[in-house]
Design a protein around this nucleic acid. Structure first.
Lengths: 266, 266
DNA sequence: ACAAAAGTGTTCAATTTACACCCATGA
DNA sequence: TCATGGGTGTAAATTGAACACTTTTGT
């Protein structure tokens, strides 16, 4: 009856997670609002291969757990963050993508409120900028000290993203494995996720001003929106808390919250 | 340096593919148009476990190929069909989902034009009906001879679909493994795919009437659309071929084709 | 002739877009 | 006081939903 599955060669399977948050930049003066910048949570690798380089939090799947559970466990272990709903992004299984051998990566992505407090030592937030030109995506990551990590990711002939990842080919100050490709895919997915139920809420605290919400949209879509129209559009999804955010050098703003019946899954 | 990945327990990985097509039903009379029915391509299993039961085409990943290549190869081997663009649907890795052991399934889905001609012996099309009631999805599959295969799939507490799949628990005339769940997920995904670039074109021949296109939409959305409005909506995406489809007991209709610049990916 | 489908036009409502205008604050 | 952001109203443009009407065919 059953054939013996151990007779076949098997891959190792990893889960990697792209966590985005909106980090507040410094305001220019007492009058100006700060604007949020898109940030991704990365860890510095402590082991070979690519030791010392940046990578997505993630790791190998163990028996007795689902891939999603692996992702949650590894995210917790490597960054200290837990309880985030994960969405499937892609599976990467290209030959040679990991110098250690036949390793498949199941990639997930999620959004959270920015917080530096509860993060593990080797994890940190990196500002994300993504540009596209002639089918070449340029991913620019910037750390707290202004150090820049730049990666290029191309579109191959079947319209799928890929980038090279052998240790020899990866430039200094770039990302380990094909993790640059994964982040690019995640940013593209993020940009396409704003039409549906309101994922943006996940990047804000429970109470927020409508301008803060609008800024999240503007950050992700990379364009300015008109305030009056934005407010009409999101009105059905938010409700007033009765609280006021004051002391900002201009008229205080009402604090809102997401309505209970609004699904913010992605 | 590198730690030895073979020291860790590894799962087997399979690719499973949900292929949908629109099968033309018989017209009632010389006057009436036939209406398409949503159909899924399944194979009868020839090996244990679940020998003799229906299953999605698919199989184990081999070294030297990506999961997408596995999916394409297995689809070709088991059904004779090739060259379909595949979209990732989900990864299933629940403990016990396959009685043979630790087996992860990477599931893909796609659309094609209905064709019975070039299909392998063990493969066949099954009409798909999906109903939902109190978070329970009922999947009803019907073969050419009117035999019915019915499966129930529930939503668990974290809003993820699951159904049981131990050999003992699966009723007769149902699907092997958790393949009913995969098909349900694929149908839900299909229903959500019609707003974006026009996937429906993939279920039609190169030239088609606008009524045929509308019928695909009605089949997937499971509701009637108004002809005038539908035509206005899809007008930017189609162009006339100059050909006419006549001989149908009523006014002949113009044949259209998808405009070249319309992306029909899903 | 006529049932069925092909195809077009028109109306009213809803939504989107753009812009103008007033309000409240703290240094 | 005044720059800055908070907040609202309104008119024009676009899109969507509903429906009426005409055309063309094979039997």
């Amino acid at each position: 009856m059953d054939y013996d599955i151990t007779a076949y060669d098997r891959p190792s399977v990893t889960a990697d997670i792209v966590v985005f948050a909106a980090r507040k930049s410094d305001g220019e003066s007492y009058r100006h609002l700060s604007t949020p910048v898109l940030s991704v949570l990365l860890v510095k690798r402590t082991d070979d291969p690519f030791s010392g380089m940046l990578a997505l939090p993630g790791g190998f799947c163990c028996r007795e757990e689902t891939i999603e559970e692996t992702a949650e466990r590894k995210l917790k272990e490597k960054t200290g963050i837990s309880d985030l709903p994960l969405s499937l992004l892609c599976n990467l299984s290209r030959l040679g993508r990991d110098p250690r051998g036949w390793i498949i990566s199941c990639c997930y992505w999620t959004l959270m409120e920015f917080s530096n407090s509860k993060i593990e030592k080797n994890a940190a937030w990196y500002e994300v900028e993504l540009d596209e030109k002639n089918d070449v995506y340029t991913l620019k990551l910037t750390d707290d000290n202004g150090n820049i990590y730049r990666s290029e990711v191309r579109l191959n002939n079947s319209n799928e993203l890929y980038n090279q990842s052998s240790e020899a080919e990866i430039p200094e100050n770039s990302l380990a494995f094909d993790h640059a490709e994964i982040i690019v895919r995640a940013v593209l997915q993020l940009r396409n996720s704003l039409d549906k139920p309101f994922a943006a809420f996940r990047m804000l605290p429970e109470q927020f001003t409508l301008t803060e919400l609008q800024q999240i949209y503007e950050m992700i879509l990379d364009k300015k929106l008109l305030m009056a129209n934005f407010r009409r559009k999101i009105a059905p999804y938010v409700e007033e808390t009765g609280n006021i955010d004051s002391g900002a050098g201009h008229r205080p703003s009402k604090l809102f919250r997401k309505k209970n019946d609004v699904n913010s899954s992605i």
